[in-house]
Design a protein around this nucleic acid. Structure first.
Lengths: 202, 202, 202, 202
DNA sequence: TATGAATGAGAATTCATTCAT
DNA sequence: TATGAATGAATTCTCATTCAT
């Protein structure tokens, strides 16, 4: 049985994804070559095709996995949040930590790159919609909880508000990624919280 | 001396830019080849290099020009706006018209692509900062006018608020570009206006 | 009769040759573009083809003309030379002046470039042979005169010696063109004269 | 791990260099295309870039290697030469063998082409100077040995004479490469030896 | 004749993927 | 499975020459 163990394969696969992630983040998806990735993973060029059938598959796998992990992480943190407001604050807090973490900033760009990439390819539309839907659901859940608990005003339009919040989050993300200088991060974040709470709480 | 008129050259240049714009919008900057552009412009491959020295120059020229036109257009409309609130409403109104215009939607993606592109190339950083700065100035102007006229609350942090508004706008833009289905545009826009006015007016 | 005067045409032709000469010398034949030449001549790109049918023709015309002028110049100087030895010294003196004249050094490279170019094209072989023959004739003439006058030894093999002298001259030329640093020009030239006279005079 | 042996790679590399050498010799460096080389080497276009990073690198590699081999060969032959005169004769003898070997003649032209090429590119100046210096050293060594042994006259200016000899050699080379017809090779070579010995020995 | 825009056949190089070992 | 050499289509840009005006 010359077949290597599944654990070994899984490990190698993960190492390849890590290497790809590193390269995508630093150079961008298009600019990253298979050579870059295998060099980084210390693996031969042919080997990578035993694990993924194309560069695109690597890209999509990473995106999916990061998204999944993101949600797992969020959910874990939510356990410690007694109410909707604190959940919202937790989400906003994540944005706050971005400016000081260059890795996460670089990664944000890859996410945007994926959006662009996917938006040109009809067969990826479903993937975008799904990811988008998952976020919308998360926000709606919080808003509904807040309405139920009386934290947020009863006439809040949950569907519209959640898509608005998501847009705001992504816009702030985008600017954080792209604009590095002379940007009043701290106060802008505080203002954002202020604005949101005025809007949600009445 | 039968050299062609300046008008002819200008026209041809514009036609090339149009062709490039069309291709960039449909395929994206990276994916668009010079061949695509010249085929679309019904021009030989060499001809385009009489007008632009590289594919990148075409890209940047389009970006700059669209940005300039955007501002001219905005300023023109502002003349009809008596106060800061109506100016803000005008800006928000532009977002509203996006969903029904597929061309503008496609173009939004090219804009985002430019941000990504520029963010990887240090020599374009200045261009990003400049474009960003121009928008920030526009927003600050409105907010200051609103504070002076008493439309907006006197303790508004203009710097933070303008960067917040810009982020919100770009986030909404992004989602409009990317998410085409099941998106409650209309109500989300109304909510956005509601949220902003609550925040600005107190 | 809309035909311009022949004098005008001749002038323009000369100006084009001058411009081409300048460009060839500075960039080399291959690297020089028609655009370079017309830009330098302040002439339109199409015009040059009214005077020469190709870039190659310009090249060959210049080479021929420089060669002719060279001989005219030599002959003129020879009138002041009473004997073979002084003629030879005059030719050697020309080499001496090379190191201090950057223009002539640059031009030497174009000559070599022509040799290379011509050596690959059978139809130019005749031109090389002709130019070579003209030089050989010149040297033979001097050597014969020197033998007749008793300046040079009577058993000198004029045919072999002239081709030897020419090779020596071109070798020195080549090194002068190519090697710019740490080259003992002055003493090497004196040595060359010494060597030649020992050889010729016995 | 069935990666090919180093010997295989070395062989392939050598085969590519041979193909390039063949093409450069027949068409010249500039005129030779990568397509020419790979067609000759019966290899795909991409393959060559696994061995060399550019056409220029191929060129320089060949030049360096031929130069190195030349010196190894010379040194090997010198072991059989008892004195400076015989060493000098050996060097002159090499020139003699040129006319009958068309390959070496063709190669001489590529060498000259390299000089031209290098003389236009500042970063190659060092390579020229180095190769030139190696030759000068070789000649100086012989001349010094000849002076020490009393073969050559004691007042010989070694620096000047070596650069003179080198120029003579390259001039003769050049003419051999370029002039194929009606050239009294044999007698010219004998004359050259005669001239040199008169000059060196007094 | 003069102009310079247009042409289009290359040129060097890249890179995802394949495949013999 | 692993290796990395091989493949070759695709890409951007160049430039001598042509040609409509």
């Amino acid at each position: 049985m010359p077949k290597v163990s599944d654990a070994y394969k899984e490990e190698k696969r993960a190492a390849l994804l890590d290497a790809a992630l590193y390269c995508f983040a630093n150079r961008g998806y298009e600019a990253t070559t298979i050579d870059d990735i295998v060099r980084h993973a210390k693996v031969s060029k042919g080997a990578i095709y035993n694990y993924f059938k194309s560069k695109e598959e690597i890209f999509l796998t990473i995106l999916e996995s990061r998204n999944d992990n993101f949600f797992l992480d969020i959910r874990a943190h939510f356990h410690a949040c007694p109410d909707a407001t604190s959940k919202l604050r937790h989400l906003l807090g994540r944005l706050r930590s971005l400016p000081i973490d260059p890795d996460r900033r670089r990664w944000g760009l890859v996410h945007v790159e994926f959006w662009l990439y996917a938006s040109r390819q009809p067969e990826l539309e479903a993937m975008i919609e799904r990811q988008y839907g998952t976020f919308i659901d998360l926000y709606q859940e919080i808003l509904l909880e807040g309405k139920a608990s009386g934290e947020f005003r009863p006439d809040l339009d949950v569907a519209a508000a959640s898509s608005l919040l998501l847009a705001l989050r992504d816009g702030v993300n985008l600017h954080l990624y792209l604009i590095s200088k002379n940007h009043p991060f701290e106060t802008a974040m505080a203002e954002m919280e202020d604005m949101l709470l005025r809007y949600l709480k009445n």
